[in-house]
Amino acid sequence: MANAMTSTALLVFLACLFLVNVEGQVGHTKARCLCLNGVVNQIKPVLIQKIVVHKSTISCPHMEIIVTLKNGAREKCLNPESGMGKKAVNKWLENQSVQ
């Protein structure tokens, strides 16, 4: 009887561990976007060092444009719907088709 209770308790314990492990697996319930603190619509072109475009993914459903500035390598998020953002995306798409 004690052996059966021990086996049952062990089985329940292992089932709980399995459920906790499965619950901790990637479920992408939270977006992992880089531009969480807002976006800007325009940045002076002379201040831009580099532009990186991140397409939408499962973990972040938004297209993001990360602009690295020359002054202290600060990064800003550029609004992809703004005029400057659309130009940056078009330029990025042109570069992707060339490669």
Rank of each mutant, 00 (worst) to 15 (best):
N3C: 10
S7C: 09
S7Q: 15
S7D: 12
A9K: 09
L11D: 03
V12H: 04
F13T: 13
A15W: 07
A15N: 02
C16Q: 05
L17N: 06
N21H: 10
N21Q: 11
V22E: 09
V22L: 15
G24L: 15
V26R: 11
H28C: 10
T29C: 08
K30R: 14
A31K: 14
C33T: 13
L34C: 01
L34R: 11
C35M: 06
L36M: 13
V40H: 06
Q42T: 11
K44H: 06
Q49P: 01
Q49M: 07
I51K: 05
V52I: 08
V53E: 00
V53L: 07
V53R: 02
V53Y: 01
H54S: 01
H54R: 06
H62W: 06
H62T: 00
M63F: 04
M63A: 12
M63Y: 01
E64R: 08
I65D: 00
I65N: 04
I66H: 10
V67N: 10
K70H: 01
N71Q: 15
R74Q: 13
R74Y: 08
E75Y: 04
C77Q: 01
L78K: 00
L78P: 00
N79G: 05
N79P: 05
N79A: 14
P80M: 04
S82F: 03
G83R: 11
M84E: 03
G85K: 08
K86I: 10
K87T: 12
K87Y: 07
A88V: 09
N90R: 06
N95G: 12
N95I: 11
